[in-house]
C-alpha cells in the first residue's frame, strides 16, 4: 500500500499532471487549499469551512442532494438523448424502444424520471430548511433570490420533460398547464402560442419543449447553480447561529 500511495503522489507531482491541475500533491493544508482554489469548478467553494456547518442537522445535506439529482439527471438525460427523436409520433415509439429494445432502457428511463421527481422534492425541502434555520437573512438575501430562480428552473425543467414521452399522461398534463397560462389577462393566449408554437399542444410544442428541456434550461440552471455556490463563499460560508448573535 505505501508503495501505491507514493506512486500516486509521484504522479500528482509529475509535470504532465501539474500542467493540467496546477496544484500538486502534498501533506499540508496549503496543498489542500490549492487543490480547491486552483480548480475552476471547486474554487466556487471556500478552501475551509466551519466544522459546525458539516453536521447533518445543519443542512440535512439537502442542497448537496439537489445538486446530486441534477448531476444524475444530466448523465441519464444525455444517454436518453441518444435514443430519442422529438417528433410525433416517433417520440412515443422511442419510449417503447427503450422499454423493449434498448438494453437497460427501462432502468435508464426510470432513473431519469425518479431523479426528476426527487429533485423537485429535494429543492422544495432545501428551501424550507434554509428558511426555518433563518439562513436567508442578510447578507445571504440575494442568494435566497437566486435560490427562488433555481426553484423556478427546476419546475420548468421537470415540466418540459413531462411532455417528451408523448403519451396520454404527458399530453394532457401539458394541456391542463398551458390552459392555465391562457388565463393571464390580455397576453394569455399570445404567451401560450409562443410556448406551444400553436394554439394547442402539437408537434411544434414537442420540439420547443425538447429544446428548452435539453439545451436552454440545463445551461441556464448550470449558470445559476454556479452563482449560487459562489455566493455561499462570498456571503461568508454557510450560516451558523453565532453564540453572540443578538438575532438569537
Amino acid at each position: 500500500m505505501p508503495g501505491l500511495i507514493d506512486d500516486i503522489a509521484g504522479l500528482r507531482n509529475s509535470r504532465v499532471w501539474r500542467s493540467v491541475f496546477r496544484s500538486g500533491s502534498g501533506e499540508s493544508n496549503l496543498h489542500r487549499s490549492l487543490a480547491v482554489q486552483q480548480n475552476v469548478f471547486l474554487h466556487l467553494a471556500s478552501v475551509k469551512v466551519r466544522r459546525r456547518v458539516l453536521k447533518f442537522s445543519a443542512t440535512w445535506y439537502l442542497g448537496t442532494l439537489s445538486l446530486g439529482c441534477f448531476l444524475i439527471l444530466i448523465t441519464t438525460g444525455i444517454l436518453l438523448m441518444l435514443y430519442y427523436h422529438p417528433s410525433v409520433p416517433q417520440a412515443y415509439a422511442d419510449m417503447k424502444d427503450l422499454q423493449f429494445v434498448v438494453s437497460a432502457g427501462v432502468f435508464l428511463r426510470n432513473l431519469h424520471r425518479w431523479s426528476a421527481h426527487a429533485m423537485v422534492l429535494l429543492v422544495f425541502a432545501h428551501l424550507f430548511k434554509v428558511f426555518y434555520r433563518g439562513a436567508y437573512r442578510p447578507p445571504r438575501e440575494f442568494n435566497w433570490v437566486i435560490g427562488v430562480v433555481l426553484l423556478m428552473l427546476t419546475l420548468f425543467l421537470s415540466y418540459t420533460g413531462y411532455l417528451l414521452p408523448w403519451d396520454q399522461l404527458a399530453f394532457w398534463a401539458i394541456t391542463v398547464g398551458s390552459n392555465i397560462l391562457a388565463a393571464v389577462p390580455v397576453l394569455g393566449a399570445k404567451i401560450r402560442f409562443l410556448i406551444l408554437g400553436g394554439h394547442t399542444v402539437n408537434a411544434n410544442a414537442l420540439l420547443r419543449f425538447y429544446v428548452l428541456h435539453c439545451v436552454i434550461l440545463p445551461l441556464v440552471t448550470v449558470l445559476f447553480v454556479a452563482i449560487h455556490f459562489w455566493r455561499i463563499r462570498k456571503d461568508g460560508g454557510l450560516y451558523v447561529k453565532e453564540k453572540t448573535d443578538d438575532r438569537n
Binding site: 489542500r32 487549499s33 471547486l42 478552501v47 475551509k48 469551512v49 466551519r50
Partner: peptide
C-alpha cells in the same frame, strides 16, 4: 467566534 475550521479538500 472561535469555531474550529476544517479543510474543504478532503473533508467537505
Amino acid at each position: 467566534h472561535d469555531d474550529p475550521y476544517v479543510m474543504t479538500f478532503p473533508e467537505v
